[in-house]
């Protein structure tokens, strides 16, 4: 949950900025995971982690330029770049599955600091930073204004293209961090390691009440959505609900959340 949580924080910015969603998350997660293990013998643990995050961020910049400045539909762009990025990451390491060179390199993440698992600390820090960025800064205000009314934000001198692009740079960065954490924890990485991360992240954000239409939402709500979905999944598993039925329930939950959002917006009359 903490590993996906890092992506949830960034995905909030994409939705709030009115950028729809970033579907290239599985690719950036895989990039982070594969590179942060594959480069360990060359760059060391920290260096390899940094390389993975940087490569994933670069992919986010590509998405940002195409969506923000090219004004191309984000779903199509990220679907396409996701395939490209994944291919590039796979090709760069040659193999299909990568193992960590130093089996102990993930111990800090698995261990506890003051009773809290290291990985939870990383997520907590990401959530706090994301929350402050969205709620307290000029950038956060610009993000909400851009998602709320793109044309009005443009006329009010908000750098709307940069703001939209920035949201995708953030998801790229978060995907890289998330992937790196995943790789270090598991000590192996396959190209399909991030599969479903985009779906889980979007589910959490939408269920948390962040509007898919842009302009409204907070990191706190998105994290709340994440916790709720995880609890629900756990409860269902404990209650013996089979996986296909769980998928059905989550799908219905998303539809309900989006329908509620649209209904509230209509009533708001704006």
């Amino acid at each position: 949950m903490s590993i996906i949580g890092v992506v949830v924080v960034a995905m909030t910015f994409v939705l709030v900025a009115g950028g729809l969603a970033d579907l290239s998350v599985p690719a950036t997660v895989a990039t982070g995971a594969i590179l942060s293990l594959a480069f360990q013998p060359v760059l060391g643990t920290v260096g390899a982690f940094g390389a993975g995050v940087m490569a994933a961020t670069a992919a986010g910049v590509l998405n940002g330029v195409l969506v923000g400045y090219g004004r191309i539909n984000a779903i199509i762009v990220t679907l396409a770049t996701g395939t490209i990025i994944l291919g590039a990451a796979q090709w760069s390491v040659g193999g299909v599955i990568v193992y960590g060179a130093y089996p102990t390199s993930g111990d800090l993440l698995k261990g506890r600091i003051a009773g809290v698992p290291g990985i939870v600390l990383v997520f907590g820090l990401a959530a706090l930073m994301g929350h402050l960025l969205l709620s307290r800064t000029v950038w956060g205000r610009w993000t909400r204004a851009t998602g709320d009314n793109y044309a009005a934000a443009t006329a009010a001198t908000v750098p709307v293209r940069l703001v939209r692009a920035g949201a995708f740079v953030l998801t790229g960065l978060a995907g890289g961090v998330s992937g790196g954490l995943l790789g270090l924890t598991l000590q192996n990485a396959r190209p399909g390691i991030g599969q479903g991360y985009e779906f889980d992240a979007i589910t959490a954000v939408v269920v948390g009440g962040v509007s898919i239409l842009g302009g409204q939402g907070s990191v706190g709500r998105a994290v709340g959505g994440l916790v709720f979905v995880q609890l629900l999944t756990n409860v269902m598993t404990l209650a013996g609900v089979r996986t296909p039925v769980q998928g059905l329930a989550l799908g219905l939950l998303i539809i309900a959340a989006v329908a509620l959002d649209v209904a509230v917006r209509r009533r708001g009359g704006s």
Partner: peptide, 19 residues
């Protein structure tokens, strides 16, 4: 269409260009 960001407050709308 081009003037207000409807879900932002009056304050947030006023200060947008000089934030």
């Amino acid at each position: 269409r081009d003037g207000i960001a409807p879900n932002l407050s009056v304050r947030e709308n006023i200060t947008l260009p000089i934030l």
